[in-house]
């Protein structure tokens, strides 16, 4: 287990380094720069700015300087938001996305898992068709339709929640619901598929022949195998869920992290792009590692090798 963990750790660092390198050079290939605005910046000012952020040095020197400061845990100041450090920007925005994402995850699992299990057990009944139709609608509806629909119902018609913003304690409900319902739809379909596959196996017949009651067959004999597709899907999805969605943050006007992924690129904010991408890559690597551990726990065959 120790060797496995160390190996995965080395692998993770390698992946992050590659992502770091590719991102660093790729953004420099895009036209424009952090100081290109509608009003042209006076050449003297521009020179001072470039000097301040080290942009006047050769690209390869910049790369190693940046890499060095990342290794020291210094994620550099933003090039667009004057006087702001990237760490501070992320620290302000990430908890909001994390809170909404966590609630969305609870909603997604809380609705998706039971719906999928019931649909699989009651295959080809109205319950199955009902849940799967809802799931299909959930998958087909984009967030920018689901979000405004929820806003119109709960915000405008019934006036239970604010339509947008991040002021009151209840403001997380609608964005979480928008995100959670859509993931719930995916999870429900994956759970149903996984459970159906397991429930058709010979060992389920063995369990029935032993007189195991139906509920125990589902919970003890089938669930572990049936959940594998969901775990495989959730691992990588987790990083995306917790770092926020640009669209949802725009619809609900939230100061989350999702907006920075997009706006930093438009702003050519070289250092902020790098910081957010490295954060996402790290989260992805971590969640993938956790998924592997979870799969090994669920599946004794993997555990052995």
């Amino acid at each position: 287990m120790l060797r496995f963990t160390l190996y995965r750790l080395a692998q993770a660092l390698g992946v992050i380094l590659v992502v770091f390198t590719i991102t660093f050079f790729l953004i420099r290939l895009t036209p424009g720069d952090p100081f290109a605005g509608e009003k042209a910046m006076p050449p003297d000012v521009r020179r001072v700015m470039e000097e301040r952020y080290g942009l006047n040095k050769p690209l390869i020197t910049q790369y190693f300087t940046t890499l060095g400061s990342y290794l020291r845990g210094d994620f550099q100041p933003s090039m667009k938001y004057q006087g702001m450090w990237n760490v501070k920007i992320i620290k302000d925005a990430f908890p909001i996305s994390l809170a909404i994402g966590s609630c969305a995850l609870v909603i997604a699992l809380g609705l998706g898992l039971p719906a999928g299990i019931i649909a699989a057990v009651k295959k080809n009944t109205w319950m199955d068709y009902g849940f799967m139709s809802l799931a299909l609608i959930g998958i087909c509806l984009p967030t920018f339709v689901m979000g405004p629909m929820l806003i119109m119902t709960f915000g405008l018609k019934w006036r239970v929640f604010n339509v947008a913003g991040w002021f009151e304690k209840t403001d997380w409900v609608l964005p979480s619901l928008t995100m959670g319902l859509i993931y719930a739809a995916y999870i429900a379909r994956l759970t149903r598929g996984g459970m159906l596959e397991v429930l058709n196996q010979d060992f389920i017949r063995t369990a029935r022949a032993k007189g195991v009651p139906g509920s125990r067959i589902v919970m003890v004999h089938a669930l572990r195998g049936g959940l594998l597709p969901v775990v495989a899907f959730l691992g990588p999805a987790l990083a995306g869920i917790t770092t926020g969605s640009f669209i949802i943050e725009k619809i609900f006007n939230l100061p989350g992290l999702g907006q920075h992924f997009v706006s930093s690129v438009f702003n050519r904010d070289y250092s902020l792009i790098l910081a957010t991408v490295v954060l996402l890559a790290t989260l992805l690597v971590v969640t993938n590692f956790l998924t592997d551990v979870l799969v090994a726990w669920l599946n004794p065959k993997v555990r052995l090798s």
Binding site: D202, R205, T206, A209, K210, G211, V212, P300
Partner: peptide, 25 residues
């Protein structure tokens, strides 16, 4: 009532022992 009989008074064994045991347990 059948559940009470299956596995206690009447038992079964099956053709393929490779797939008849639960791999997760």
């Amino acid at each position: 009532e059948l559940q009470r009989i299956r596995g206690s008074r009447i038992s079964m064994i099956f053709q393929d022992p490779m797939t008849s045991l639960n791999p997760w347990l």
